[in-house]
Every structure is written in structure tokens, then in C-alpha cells.
Amino acid sequence: MIKSIDEYLEQLKMELKDSDSATVQDALADAEEHLRTALANLKQEQPDASEEDALGQVIEQYGAPDETASAYKEVERLTHPVLVSGSPKDQSIIARFFGVYTDARAWGALLYMLIAFVTGVIYFTWAVTGVSVSVSFLLFIFGFPLALLFLLSVRGLALLEGRLVEALLGIRMPRRPLFSHQDMKWLDRLKALVTDKATWLMIVYMLIQFVLGTVYFVVFVIVLSLSLSFMSLPFIQLFLSTPIVSIDDRVIYLPYWTLVLISIGGLLLWTSFMHLARGIGQLHGRMAKVMLVVD
């Protein structure tokens, strides 16, 4: 007999322990939303029913943890191959090459590469400051709550980063924080956080993000400016009558047919970069999933 919603969720988590971590968190979120709503409604309809009876009825209708788990496993098993196959294969190479412009994941990855620069700096500063301040203050008694606050903030930032990764890179990430044990003493919570490998992976991610964010940003800006200048070359010579190449005092006007080629080259460069960005985005998303999702 299950006595509380938290107990139900614990059991559901146990049943789903072999499933994809994102599926587990979704299943838990769905169950929590439903059970709480259903329980509240039932209590309004039957104010006399005891908490245990009411929960029993609600779970009877919702399904036992193993039944619910098997429903998620079934859907996961049936849909997984469909989700993996991404781009349609029946298009020509050219259509697929330029089709990247209609791919939300490519645009999302570009945006992510820009944002990663800012978030990278913030994460790095926060992680370095947090670790050094926490460690040095551990000499004093008030260093412990400080360390706990910092580690909790790391968890929060990891969840936030996960939302960003899911929104822009399309990689499924957890949507809710893990259930924290409210009844635990804070010193035990600190111990649990410090001994959890996941916390340290998150901090490492925050440090790495600084380097990656900078690289992404620099590459993005270089390729964007190169492509744009290549694409605009014909117009500069055509309308502004400004020579494109000048060596010392000699100026060279390029023949028009080369200008068209250079312009097309700029377009191809940018389109290729969109493909590259999409690939980088997917890789980054996979890395984020490994480092930020707690099993």
C-alpha cells in the first residue's frame, strides 16, 4: 500500500531505472502533476475520505507504478527509431545542402553558439568564485552553509543550462529538478551533494563551457564576417566603384565573373557553416546530457 505521492514517485523511478533519463523525469513529472490534481479533486468531492483511501483510489485509476512504467517503456520502445531518423533521405544533395536553412536545429545551434559565450563567462566566474570561497571558508563553521548554498546553485544552473540546451539544440534534457529530500538535515544534504559525482561533473561542465563558449563565438564571428564580405564584394565594386584589391599604390579591379564566383563562394561557406554548427550543437548537446543529467 502506497502511503504518499512521494512514495509512488520513488517506486516509479525504481521501475524505470533502465530507461532513458529524460523519459524518467518526464514520467515523474506527469505522475506528480496528475496525482496531485486528482487527489485535490477527490478530496473536494469526498471530504470525509481518509488521505490513504483517497490516494488509493487515485492510484487505482492512474495505475500502479509498474503499470505506469511499462506504459512509458512501451512507447519508448515503439517510437525510438522514428525519433532517430532525422533528415528525409529522398531529396537531392542540393536540396539537402540548402535545406539546412529550414532546419530549426541549425538556427538554434547558431544562437546557442552566441549565447554560450555569455553563459560560459558567467558559469566560469561563478564556479571559480564559489569553489574558492567555499573551500577557504570551510576553516570556519559558516563555511559549511556557504558551501551548501553554492552546490545547490550549481544544481540550479545545471537545470537551467539543460533547458537552454533542449530549447536550442533539441536534445531532451530534464524538465524538473530532482526531488530533494526536504526532511534531510542540511549537513547531510551537503554531504550528499559533495559525494555525488554529478555535482562535480556539473562544475567541470561550467569550467569547460568558458573555453567552448569562447571558441564557438570566435568561429561564429569569423565565418559570419568572411561570408558576408565575400557575398557583398560584387556590390562594392559595382556600386561604390571601390577597387577590391590594393597593393601599395596599385589597385586591381577584378573581372565581373570572378566576383559572382566569390559571392557564391561566400554563400556556400555560410551554408556549410550552418551544417557544421548543427553538428557542433548535437555534439555539445550529447556532452551536456552526459555531464548534466543525474542518473
Partner: peptide
Amino acid sequence: MKQGALYPVLRQ
């Protein structure tokens, strides 16, 4: 069907 089985279908 159990209500819990609706949610994975909605997600899918």
C-alpha cells in the same frame, strides 16, 4: 485503460 498510460501517448 489506466490514466497513467495516457501521458506517454500524449508525449509521443
